[in-house]
Design a protein around this nucleic acid. Structure first.
Lengths: 151, 151
DNA sequence: ATTACTGCAAAGGATTTGCATGTGA
DNA sequence: TCACATGCAAATCCTTTGCAGTAAT
């Protein structure tokens, strides 16, 4: 993530904003989480470290970084997730049973986007689509339970 | 929506619950909204009418109706929408500019679901998918603004 | 007559904001 | 130095809950 590190410092400077330890800490926390986190996760991750950081600052900083387009925000199930901006388009498969989030290749969604555009005239944002359902493991468990019941 | 009216009265009776004016009012409000509303919309719609209804009751009643499976709840962008249960599968196209929600035919999503299952082993809930983007009108406006800038 | 439901008001939790202080440039 | 950022605490917003009174059956 060193690429990000250099990059954001520069971007903040350019626009006349300050590079504070709080902003660095929070960006690091997002990167450490694999570039995909919630405010709550940032909070606990950072709070675990020594120099305590105010909760209001986390809110303000995330909003600031979003406005700066260094990170992007997206909603899944009422929770806001934050990611480092400018990643390759990818999509989320959210398991309703275990909550796990996996990724889906872009091609399928790109095709869907094209179809929707043709049929409905609607331009789907195909850089961040979230689909809900059940992951393979949870689905198998559910099936087994069902067939056990039938006997 | 008379079909719903008769139906839910009966369903509540069967299970020993009461048919109160508040519950009727709220169900009516959801139907009046075309079977697709938010708590806030129910509240203003109902509040506009004369016999004022408590906000806590709206919360409790929506949760109650959901537990009774007379309505279903779904989240889009952190807002919970409620619809009459048992409608035909359909999907939502949410415009990020004007907020308007339009519907999408089931076939496209069903196909996507099949593809995702094959490729990723993930079973998409294909009964309520929400896609974000821009509706035709807002997209046209945005395009026009862009080309105007270039001149 | 019961007791499920509602209204009210207070509690609770998450997020935002005003203001004084601190600090990066 | 000096405006931008932060910390703190209070304010605000949304939602839930306890309790006493009301009304559906």
């Amino acid at each position: 993530m060193s690429h990000n590190r250099l990059n954001y410092t520069q971007r903040l400077h350019e626009r006349g904003f300050r590079v504070t330890p709080q902003r660095q800490t929070i960006l690091d926390a997002i990167c450490a989480a694999g570039g995909h986190t919630t405010l709550e996760e940032v909070w606990t991750r950072v709070h675990a470290g020594s120099p305590v950081l105010n909760r209001a600052t986390v809110y303000r900083t995330l909003e600031f970084l979003r406005a700066m387009r260094l990170i992007v925000a997206l909603e899944l199930d009422g929770v806001t997730y934050y990611e480092i901006a400018g990643e390759a388009p990818h999509h989320h498969l959210v398991c309703r049973t275990c909550g796990q989030v996996s990724e889906l290749e872009h091609a399928l969604i790109a095709r869907l986007g094209a179809q929707v555009r043709r049929r409905a005239g609607f331009i789907v944002d195909t850089d961040h689509v979230a689909l809900h359902g059940q992951c393979a493991a949870c689905h198998r468990k559910a099936q087994r339970r069902k067939s056990a019941k039938q006997e």
